[in-house]
Amino acid sequence: MQTIADEMAGRTLTELDHVRLEALLRRGAHLASPALVNQLLDDADLLPSRQIGADVVTMNSQVQLADPQDGGRRTLTLCYPADADAEAGRVSVFSPLGAALLGCRVGDLARWQTPYGEPLMAQILAILYQPEASGDYTL
């Protein structure tokens, strides 16, 4: 059975997202899952922002998710830690859910664990906004 860390291997990130996230890590940004985020950055396939597919979750993407167990849907925006706001649906990339989403594609099943070890998952139904697909290569 694959672990969450195994599922993160080989995800596609933009070069800009990678550089920015590594800089945050070096500055000691607060992480809920430092080992997973480090592994994600180490194992990622990198592409220039202009070459990333519109179906890939990048930083500042707004995604529609579905719970595969009950079909419940929610919309979230993947953001940097300073911009996180749970009530507004803004999820930090350094949270377990945020790290699980980054680099996934539409149709993928994102998996993560709560701080208490409870496994959770959500299917990525759609990317409602992706900066790169909108021509915003520096967000």
Rank of each mutant, 00 (worst) to 15 (best):
M1F: 05
Q2I: 01
Q2N: 06
I4Q: 02
I4T: 02
D6E: 04
E7I: 02
E7R: 12
G10A: 02
R11N: 01
R11L: 06
T14Y: 09
T14L: 01
E15K: 08
L16S: 05
E22F: 07
A23T: 04
L25Y: 10
R26S: 10
R26F: 13
G28H: 05
L31D: 08
A32W: 14
P34W: 08
P34Y: 09
P34V: 05
L36G: 04
V37I: 10
N38Y: 13
N38M: 09
N38P: 03
L40G: 00
L40W: 02
D42R: 12
D43S: 15
D43L: 10
A44V: 09
A44C: 08
L46S: 03
S49M: 12
S49I: 04
R50M: 10
Q51E: 15
I52L: 14
A54G: 15
A54C: 14
V56Q: 03
V56E: 04
V56Y: 07
V56H: 05
V57S: 03
M59Y: 12
N60E: 13
S61V: 02
S61N: 04
Q64D: 13
Q64V: 09
A66Y: 11
D67Y: 14
D70C: 12
T75Q: 04
L76I: 06
T77R: 09
T77K: 05
L78G: 00
Y80D: 01
A82L: 03
D83I: 01
D83V: 01
A86Y: 10
A86V: 01
E87W: 06
R90Y: 10
V91E: 10
S92G: 07
F94E: 00
L97T: 05
L97A: 07
L97F: 10
A99R: 03
A100M: 06
L101S: 01
G103P: 02
C104A: 09
G107K: 03
D108S: 13
D108I: 08
L109I: 12
A110K: 01
R111P: 04
P115N: 10
P115T: 08
P119L: 10
M121F: 11
Q123Y: 12
Q123C: 09
Q123L: 09
A126D: 15
I127V: 11
A133Q: 07
A133M: 08
S134G: 11
G135A: 10
D136N: 15
D136I: 11
D136C: 14
